[in-house]
Design a protein around this nucleic acid. Structure first.
Lengths: 216, 216
DNA sequence: ACTGATTTTAAACGATCGTTTGAAAGTAGG
DNA sequence: CCTACTTTCAAACGATCGTTTAAAATCAGT
């Protein structure tokens, strides 16, 4: 029969939690196609069949992994956004703060961060439906809130600027320590830097025409 | 014996080129672990064994795919950077222009762009050595050039800001049309927006303390 | 046309893939 | 203890994985 459909969160050492943790870790390091069901079971110290029994399939397990981590973060984002919007529409810094803060400071943040970075960059055919399901509401509301800060700006520009923020965020989460970019920083420093970078990128500034004319 | 070690570029319909094109397309859509050697051969209309014969292995084929596209872009980047640096150290806009322009406007740009986005976000154990090999020199030189623009700023901050640019770029290339962020734009528009966003993000502006105090 | 090297081919290698089965083990409530 | 239910387990399912083999086909030089 269907196994415990009502109670997802269990003791941290039972089979379901062990599978979730193992799948999360392997998904972060190898992506969906790169993690095998057997490797998950072995890492979890659990029989392979337990995956099918508790989550239906490998993809069902990934879905549970994502929802476990992403849902609390997105909930916190929307709660903070609601509080910001009560203060009036002109607070781009506060809006981006509401978007970024929960990623860096929600509990269980360390695995959740890397998971977020991985899932945002995973091949579309694996997670596109899941991304839509989990993120479309959050993105939509935040883009609308940011657009309200710049009522005279093109909506497409606002949406794309927000995608730049999401990209910078995802890449930062995905490669917390990359030999390409030198020294690693603490969570707090990265958060503050990314927030400031994003806010500055959103500001309306005069386009520097000399860049294009001089170089091109 | 070793197959044509000296002449990589061939007629656009010979086996090597067909394999390169097919592997590139599948790598973009599914990542390394998600593309199978058989799918590559089938897409290329070529026998499976031809992959081992011409490129040694699936990983060797990926390596050739990456170098074919990324090397010309990185060459153009460094050529443009050299020209910029002759003009003096205070041209962050020109530097970022030199970094971004070749991605959007090097020939064969369309597949090359998506390939660049995919490879930057692929799991580390697959492409980390390749990333190091292909990008470390470019990143190092550009970070140094940008640092010269802001001699009083922390080097780690400069490097991380540059990683934000790379992240925003990678994400933009990876998801040229995502239902999450609404309408698609042309290459020219995306390029100009990303360049401006990056330049503004690098500017030295006073930190808005009210963001943190108000919300936290 | 013949020879020697290059390239393509069908077929198979062992390994691993995600999933399923049916029996054994564990867990209450009576 | 017995029964009904849940969970775990070893084992196997067919399919596909990346790679290799050796023979067939193609090509270039004389």
């Amino acid at each position: 029969m269907n196994p415990k459909p009502e109670n997802i969160a269990c003791d941290s050492n039972d089979t379901q939690a062990r599978l979730l943790n193992a799948a999360e870790s392997l998904f972060i390091d190898a992506g969906y196609a790169g993690m095998s069901a057997r490797a998950i079971a072995q890492t979890a110290g659990v029989n392979i069949a337990a995956m099918g029994y508790h989550f239906g399939s490998k993809h069902g397990l990934l879905e549970a992994v994502l929802i476990r981590r992403v849902a609390p973060i997105n909930d916190a984002r929307l709660r903070r956004l609601a509080r910001v919007c009560e203060r009036g529409p002109d607070a781009i810094g506060a809006i981006l703060h509401a978007f970024l803060w929960p990623v860096f400071y929600t509990e269980n943040e360390a695995p959740a961060r890397r998971l977020m970075g991985r899932v945002m960059t995973e091949p579309a055919d694996v997670v596109e439906p899941l991304l839509d399901l989990v993120f479309s509401d959050v993105i939509e509301q935040f883009v609308a809130a940011v657009a309200a800060c710049f009522p005279n700006e093109d909506k497409g520009l606002i949406a794309q600027k927000f995608s730049f923020v999401v990209g910078a965020l995802s890449f930062t989460l995905l490669r917390p320590s990359s030999p390409l970019f030198g020294s690693v920083t603490t969570t707090d420093v990265s958060f503050k830097r990314l927030l400031k970078f994003s806010v500055d990128g959103f500001q309306i500034t005069p386009t520097n025409r000399s860049i294009e004319k001089d170089i091109l």
